[in-house]
Design a protein around this nucleic acid. Structure first.
Lengths: 212, 212
DNA sequence: GGAATTATGTGAAAAGCCTTCACATGAGCT
DNA sequence: AGCTCATGTGAAGGCTTTTCACATAATTCC
C-alpha cells in the first residue's frame, strides 16, 4: 500500500499530512481567488491545510516559491487548454486559431486566481527554471499555430510567424487583463471579451492578407 | 507666506513635515520601483519621509488608499502623455495614432512602478471615484483618437470606434505588460516593443481598410 | 523483524508590518 | 493671547514570515 497513513480513521489527524504540497497549492488558489495574490498568506494556507505555520516551509522555500509553483501549474494547464483548442489546426487553421483565442480567454475567466499569479504577481522572470519552462510551453502552442497560420498568407508578403504569435498573445493578454477578470470586470464593454478578441483577430488576419 | 514652516533652518526637522502626502507618494514609487507593488510597505515609506509609522494615516486611510493615489496620479500623467502625443491628430490621423501607441509604451517603460500599480496591483476597480475618473480620462484620449481614425475607413464598412479603441488599448497593454517592463524584460524579443506595436497597428489598420 | 536514516510536522521565538488610540505640538484665526 | 484644527508621536495589539531545535512517522537496510 503506497499511502500507509491512509484515511483509515477519518476524524483523527495523522501527524503526517500525506499530500501537503498539493493541499497548500489548492488553499493558496482559494485564498488568492478571494483576496488577490497580495492577500494570500502562508500562515492562512497552512491553517486551511490544518498544519502549523512552519510546516509549509518543508516543501516551499518561502512564500514566493509557493507562488511560483502555483504559477507553474497554471502555465501547464493553460498550455494543455491551448493545445486541445488548437487540435492540430483542424478543420482549418483560421477557425482553429480563433478557438485558441477563445480558450485563452476562457482560461483567464475561469481561473482568475491562476491567471493573476501567472501574470500579475510580479514574480521575477527567473524565479525557477520549471516556471520558465512551463511558460515557454504555453507560448510555444501559440507559436506553432502561428506558423501554420502564416502559410495561409500570400507568399509574397508572408509575415514572420514569431511576430504574429507575439501580436496575438499580446492582444489576448490585453483583453484578458483589462476586461475579462472573473467577476471583477474592470470596465463595461459593448460586447463580450470573446467577441472582442474574435473581432480583433479577424481584422488582424485580414490585414495580413489571409482570406477568411 | 503660504508655508510658514519653511526651509529656514535646514538641518532641524520641523514637527510638521509640510508636504507629507507628496513625499509619501514619491517614496512609495521609489520603493515599488525597487521591489514591486507587494514589496512596498507603509512603514518604509514613512521612514523614507522621516516621520513615524503612524503619520501616513493622517493622509491616507490605509495602504491601499495610498496605492490608489499613486495609481490616480499615474493615470493623470498617462492621459497627459497620450494627449500630447495625439496632438489633435496632426499632421494626419494615422501617424498621430502611432505616436499615441509609442507614447503608451514609453510611459510603461519609463514609469514601470506607476504602471505596475495602475494595472497589476489588483486595486478593486471601485477603490475611489477619483481613480476611476483618472482611468477614464486616459482611456478617453484613445477613444477620441479612434473616432477620428475611423473616419478614414471606407464608409460602407466603418467599424465602431469604441471597439477599435478597445482593441488598440488591449494590444498596447498586452505588449507593455508582457514585454516592455523597465529592466525586467520578461522575454527575448526579435524586435523592440515599440516596433512590435507599430507593426501590429499597421496590420490592424490595413485590416480595417484604412489606407496607409 | 529491528535499527538507522530520512522526511515531515511542531512549538517557540525574533523581527517586521498594519493600524489604532490617546496624547503632543504646532499653525491659523479671532 | 487664546482657541481650534490639522498633523505628528509612542505605544500597543494582532497579524505575518521565517528559522531553529526537537518530535514523530515512513523508509531503507541489515
Amino acid at each position: 500500500m503506497s499511502w500507509s497513513k491512509s484515511r483509515s480513521d477519518k476524524g483523527r489527524r495523522a501527524y503526517h499530512h500525506g499530500n501537503l504540497p498539493d493541499e497548500l497549492v489548492r488553499a493558496a488558489l482559494e485564498l488568492i481567488a478571494e483576496k488577490g495574490p497580495s492577500g494570500f498568506t502562508m500562515a492562512e494556507a497552512a491553517r486551511a491545510a490544518g498544519v502549523s505555520p512552519a510546516a509549509p516551509y518543508r516543501h516551499f522555500r518561502d512564500r514566493e516559491d509557493l507562488m511560483a509553483e502555483v504559477a507553474r501549474r497554471g502555465f501547464d494547464r493553460l498550455a494543455e487548454a491551448l493545445e486541445t483548442a488548437w487540435d492540430d489546426g483542424a478543420p482549418n487553421p483560421v477557425s482553429a486559431f480563433e478557438r485558441v483565442g477563445r480558450a485563452y480567454l476562457k482560461f483567464a475567466r475561469e481561473n482568475p486566481a491562476d491567471y493573476a499569479v501567472m501574470f500579475e504577481a510580479g514574480l521575477p522572470s527567473d524565479t525557477s527554471p520549471e516556471l520558465s519552462r512551463a511558460n515557454e510551453k504555453a507560448f510555444s502552442v501559440l507559436r506553432r499555430a502561428s506558423e501554420v497560420l502564416c502559410q495561409e498568407a500570400p507568399a509574397e508578403q508572408r509575415p514572420p510567424a514569431l511576430m504574429v504569435s507575439l501580436h496575438i498573445w499580446s492582444v489576448s493578454h490585453g483583453i484578458a487583463a483589462l476586461f475579462s477578470r472573473g467577476d471583477a470586470a474592470r470596465r463595461k464593454l459593448p460586447m463580450a471579451p470573446e467577441e472582442l478578441l474574435e473581432a480583433a483577430i479577424l481584422i488582424y488576419l485580414r490585414g495580413l492578407g489571409i482570406r477568411i
